[in-house]
Design a binder for these strands. Structure first.
Length: 496
RNA sequence: GGUGCUGUGGCCGAGAGGUUAGGCACGGCUCUGCAAAAGCCGAUACACCAGUUCAAAUCUGGUCAGCACCUCCA
């Protein structure tokens, strides 16, 4: 089997993945800021990392997956002043900031559950790690990479850059970065234009504040991830992930903080997932083009023609590589819905098939099946190329369907080939891709009624009373139930 | 302005010097009482202009168009 290769943002190339400790992987992913509902773009990132998490486990690694909840310190504006997002929202809704945090954390978890994302191993919160953040700020100060001005502590970017390249993650030079920022105003406390706050002095009316060596205040946004990743994964760990939008500022600052504090680069592999777009423009909260998951599941959105199941959306995302932008549209979603059904039907068929007696083995067919199944792992090892895995799976669908219709016999391939095909189909679809059945749940009553109708129709057909049989089928179809007459005389039904 | 990325058939999207990606939609055929489903076959392609090469959608240079980040956002 090929070795796992991961595109590393640090080197901008695909690298063979080698964990620090053989057999173990530490992975940190930047989680949501819980001051409002997560939109689909956020979900895409977490679904991408869920697949990565599941695949690493499939490869046999023991994975510690840490994903934080940001519930403090995230400022509204681009300057290190003003309220954080929680305080602002709390004032708006006239509740406690922690009520905001609780509400949207629960909502986030519910959405993750609907998408069948596995929970991370540890989900630490910023407010739960204030002292760790303070300790880190103290150490950075002691190491000389930060300075305090009136209760606020800033990171000295230009000093840091003289020793370590600050813009290493996004390949930017200091001069270019400075060019893109405004001049410091007279009232600015910061020494350098790129300096960012590690700890921020709170105004008396500020709702969320903690005591620190610099007075009452709250942590800057970036320090929480550095402090919590160090606490649970160590000063150096394997993978750090997040959305691409976080690379230039948040992750760049994380690297600088950790280096300044511990003198090592925190993560070996940086993975960045690309954005979800709507009509070619990035989906974002501020642009107002965000889709909420429940709008999608209910179809209650002006741009949606119908509702889409969570699994349809998950599958839709799997059809694109995680580093490509993915454009969101009705057409694409409908195509995904049909494609998933075709694939899932084939999966159910292969699950129900048993290997009987070996027939004359069709060498070309046997080889084709084996090659396509081998493609699954090879494609995933090539930087988690889920789209390519799906292509291989779809190529197996006609083969599987032909086993059912007996246009091909299962005995035409070797028993070990069949078992491997069956197992890998299941493992990939359910364990790695995390897909579940989109069918309606068990409904004994409906089941019984339909069996009766199918029986009456069968009798009508037996006496060639097609008017009656067609009436039953057509009217059921209008009610949303599709009957299918199979070759072997059996009849199956499904909800449209 | 800086840093990157992208431009693939009607739509969505992989791939990456020679070999069918795949899905959806479309056309033909088979099966079927008729359908549906399924199977088989098929058409439509790599933004533009040069260059390298026996061979380029794939490499190089240029042109055009778009996107993202550099400011809160996954």
């Amino acid at each position: 089997m090929s070795a796992l290769k991961i595109y590393n943002s640090l080197s901008r190339t695909k690298e063979v993945f080698t964990p620090i400790t053989p057999g173990y992987v530490g992975m940190y992913v930047c989680g949501p800021t819980v001051y409002s509902d997560v939109h689909l773009g956020n979900c895409r990132t977490f679904i991408s990392f869920d697949i990565i998490y599941r695949y690493l486990k499939y490869l046999g690694y023991k994975v510690r997956y840490v994903r934080n909840i940001t519930d403090a310190g995230h400022l509204e504006g681009d300057r290190d002043e003003g309220d954080d997002k929680f305080s602002k929202k709390a004032r708006l809704e006239q509740v406690e900031p922690m009520e905001i945090v609780q509400k949207y954390t629960l909502g986030f978890h519910e959405v993750m559950r609907l998408f069948n994302n596995q929970p991370p191993s540890i989900e630490p919160t910023a407010t739960g790690h204030i002292s760790e953040q303070i300790e880190m700020v103290k150490q950075i100060l002691a190491n000389g990479y930060a300075y305090e001005v009136d209760g606020t502590v800033y990171f000295d970017v230009e000093k840091y850059d003289r020793e370590k390249p600050y813009g290493i993650l996004t390949n930017r030079k200091m001069e270019d970065l400075l060019e893109g920022t405004r001049e410091l105003g007279g009232q600015d406390e910061k020494r350098g234009r790129l300096d960012f706050a590690l700890w921020i002095k709170a105004k008396p009316e500020h709702l969320m504040q903690w005591p620190s060596p610099w007075g009452m205040g709250f942590p800057g946004w970036h320090i929480e991830c550095s402090a919590m990743s160090e606490k649970y994964l160590g000063k150096q760990f394997d993978i750090h992930g997040g959305g691409m939008d976080l690379a230039a500022t948040h992750h760049t600052n994380e690297i600088a903080q950790s280096q300044a504090c511990f003198h090592v680069s925190p993560a070996n592999y940086w993975i960045h997932t690309n954005m979800l777009t709507v009509n070619g423009a990035r989906m974002s909260k501020s642009a107002g083009n965000g889709f909420l998951p429940h709008e999608l599941f209910t179809g209650n959105h002006p741009l949606l023609e119908k509702a889409y199941a969570p699994m349809t959306v998950r599958f839709f995302m799997l059809q694109t590589h995680y580093r490509s932008t993915l454009d969101f549209s009705n057409e694409a979603l409908q195509a995904a819905e049909k494609g998933l059904k075709r694939l899932w039907d084939a999966y159910e068929i292969v699950e129900s098939l048993e290997y009987g007696v070996q027939d004359l083995v069709d060498e070309a067919l046997d080889q084709k099946c084996n090659d396509l199944v081998t493609e699954f792992d090879n494609s995933m090892n090539d930087d988690f190329n889920t789209a390519k895995v799906l292509a291989a799976m779809f190529e197996l669908v006609p083969v599987i369907n032909s086993f059912k219709t007996q246009q091909l016999s299962v005995g035409n391939i070797r028993p070990e080939t069949f078992e491997r095909l069956k197992q890998q189909f299941r493992v990939y679809l359910t364990d790695i891709f995390g897909l579940t059945s989109v069918k309606e749940g068990d409904n004994g009553l409906l089941d019984g009624v339909l069996e009766l109708l199918i029986q009456i129709r069968k009798e009508a057909r037996a006496r060639k009373d097609f008017a009656t049989s067609d009436k039953i089928r057509n009217e059921l179809q209008q009610k949303g139930v599709i009957l299918k007459d199979n070759k072997d005389g059996s009849v199956t039904w499904e909800v449209a």
